[in-house]
């Protein structure tokens, strides 16, 4: 069997793989966005900027301190997470009780600042970041060649998504988080420090974005604009999947990535726009989103 529906199989699986990779990033970013929105009621427009910061922190760790990929994978989310917590404490906490639109505007401004600063320092041409030696090479799966690093990205992101979902649904901390999302005042009355929970949640969301950034660095180049283009697609994921649902954003993220990959195969010119068309269709058919509760 060398073709399915007239499409050569290597091309088909190649695009599906690319779709899964993109989907992995969509899923991880929209997951963070959903967790943050759930508790803070803030659409974090700077999520793309934190993703870019994650990649750049990895690059800087290598260029400045000689710390390689594995260190970056650990340190970059920590550094960016701490930065995120500072942002929450110093800026977002002041918007408590205001219309959520102000949170969107504030984080948009923040994204402009972060991206602008990096564009001025590093330019827009993009910096290379190598695949770690342990994950170099590729293996033959019989029906396609899978570069090891891409397999690793898909596997790790699935694992992270699953762990986040389990953490929120099955652990005590997750239960507290859900309680605070549902009713912050009442949760506080039970003696839980909700402001601290809010700060930690924002830090966790940004750390997740940074992790995605480090994972992305060897695949795409490290570029100040890498997050700006991505964040809009991630918003689409969130609109389609519904922000109330953790599982929804994971499934939608991977699904949209695959849809993009398939479109690139069938109608290449439509690959950039297909996610938006899907969003329009979903909004017309099911306005609350595929997994969302009606708002």
């Amino acid at each position: 069997m060398h073709s399915i529906f007239g499409i050569p199989t290597p091309a088909l699986f190649g695009q599906l793989l690319l779709g899964l990779i993109n989907g992995a990033f969509y899923a991880m970013l929209s997951l963070g966005l959903a967790v943050i929105f759930g508790l803070l009621n803030v659409v974090n427009f700077s999520h793309g900027a934190f993703y870019m910061l994650g990649a750049f922190t990895g690059w800087l760790l290598l260029a400045g301190l000689g710390l390689g990929y594995w260190w970056a994978l650990l340190l970059s989310p920590l550094i960016v997470g701490v930065l995120g917590m500072a942002v929450e404490r110093l800026l977002l906490a002041r918007l408590k009780g205001l219309d959520p639109l102000y949170g969107l505007l504030l984080t948009f401004g923040l994204a402009l600042i972060i991206q602008g600063v990096f564009r001025n320092i590093f330019g827009v041409s993009g910096l290379p970041y190598g695949v770690p030696s342990q994950l170099a090479g590729a293996r033959n799966l019989g029906f396609m060649i899978l570069p090891n690093y891409r397999g690793w990205v898909i596997g790790l992101s699935l694992l992270v998504c699953l762990a986040t979902w389990l953490g929120i649904e099955k652990t005590r901390l997750g239960a507290t988080l859900r309680a605070a999302t549902e009713n912050a005042t009442l949760t506080e009355a039970f003696g839980i420090n909700v402001p601290r929970l809010v700060t930690l949640t924002y830090g966790f969301g940004t750390a997740l974005a940074a992790l995605a950034g480090v994972l992305a660095a060897p695949i795409y180049s490290v570029n100040p604009n890498m997050g700006a283009d991505l964040i809009i697609t991630v918003f689409v994921v969130v609109v389609i999947g519904g922000m109330g649902s953790i599982l929804g954003s994971i499934v939608t993220g991977f699904g949209l990535g695959l849809a993009e990959g398939l479109t690139r195969l069938v109608y290449p010119a439509g690959s950039a726009t297909v996610v938006f068309v899907i969003m329009i269709v979903v909004l017309l058919v099911k306005p609350a989103g595929l997994f969302g509760r009606s708002t």
Binding site: V43, V239, A272, T273, V275, L283, T295
Partner: peptide
């Protein structure tokens, strides 16, 4: 017709996505 089906935060994200669609169309 599409965008007013949702409000608040979602409205902002939907309008942004629709505009991005137009951007890509204009690019191509």
């Amino acid at each position: 017709v599409v965008a007013i089906r949702r409000q608040g935060i979602y409205f902002a994200m939907i309008t942004l996505a629709l505009a991005q669609l137009i951007y890509f169309v204009c690019l191509q």
